[in-house]
């Protein structure tokens, strides 16, 4: 199966290990991975800030880059960015040249955990990680992409990992892309509440499927001098893997 990796700008600039872990996990499950070098970013930083016209070029570049390699699927390690690619047909609806391509792109693009669970049917990825963890569900992944199950389902089978529920999981962590830099006074209060809820779980590891949120929450933990281990789901599923533990779902999720 040929898979194009949608690396996302956050992973390219700040989280190299997340990209590596994702590729290693996907290869373990038989994916032949490609990384088109012309890809940049989904366009949210400028589009969501109101720079619509300038972002059209970013959208078109991303479409061309990700479709430049023939593939069965396009997979990315960020729920928010993947949700944005899924919106491309709407965002490029007035561009007759790109609308068709955008539809093709959107139809085969998946977030890492949902690809693993819903498309490959992985039940147990074979990982082992000892410790107590909590999961931060990101807003765009749950609300815009509509994916609220796959990360939990995959985490459930990690050997040695105790998952504890996070209070007010539905509340935003205060990242919001440029919001975090433009309105730091509001964002700070939001992330502080998130930090408090995470601390209250007693978890030593914070897991998420959105590097943007991890960058925000992790950066705040560090500024406050509070201990936490920041992990993307791909890193968790790539920990101490014993392939004999791997199992597949008997029934595919609907």
């Amino acid at each position: 199966m040929k898979v194009v990796i949608f690396s996302t700008c956050v992973v390219d600039l700040e989280f190299p290990n997340v990209g590596k872990a994702m590729v290693e996990v996907l290869e373990r499950f038989g994916c032949d991975c490609y990384l088109p070098s012309d890809q940049i970013c989904c366009g949210q930083p400028t589009y969501n800030s109101g720079y619509e016209k300038g972002t059209q070029r970013t959208f078109r570049n991303q479409v061309d880059a990700l479709l430049s390699v023939e593939s069965d699927y396009i997979v990315g390690p960020a729920g928010s960015c993947v949700a944005m690619l899924r919106e491309y047909p709407e965002l490029l609806k007035d561009d007759p040249e790109y609308l068709g391509k955008a539809r093709i792109l959107a139809a085969k693009t998946y977030e890492f955990s949902q690809f693993l669970w819903r498309i490959l049917g992985v039940e147990n990825a074979g990982a082992e990680l000892n410790g107590k963890a909590t999961y931060h569900r990101s807003c765009h992944m749950t609300r815009l992409l509509g994916e609220a199950e796959s990360p939990y389902a995959l985490l459930e089978h990690v050997k040695g990992l105790e998952m504890v529920p996070l209070a007010n999981a539905h509340d935003c962590c205060g990242f919001g892309g440029t919001f975090s830099a433009k309105e730091p006074e509001i964002s700070k209060q939001m992330v502080d509440e998130k930090v408090r809820h995470i601390e209250e779980t007693g978890a030593e590891i914070l897991v998420s499927c959105d590097p943007g949120c991890l960058m925000n929450i992790g950066g705040r933990f560090n500024r406050l001098g509070k201990p936490i281990k920041i992990m993307h789901l791909a890193e968790v599923l790539n920990s101490n893997v014993d392939e004999r533990r791997i199992t597949y779902l008997k029934q595919m999720p609907v």
Binding site: V11, F15, V23, L35, K188, N222
Partner: peptide, 22 residues
């Protein structure tokens, strides 16, 4: 605005970036 609230690591060395690794 970002740095008022949170710490940010500087990006990895080019040879340690995801793309170089890949």
């Amino acid at each position: 605005g970002w740095a008022d609230v949170r710490d940010l690591p500087i990006p990895p060395k080019h040879k340690e970036s995801f793309r170089s690794w890949f």
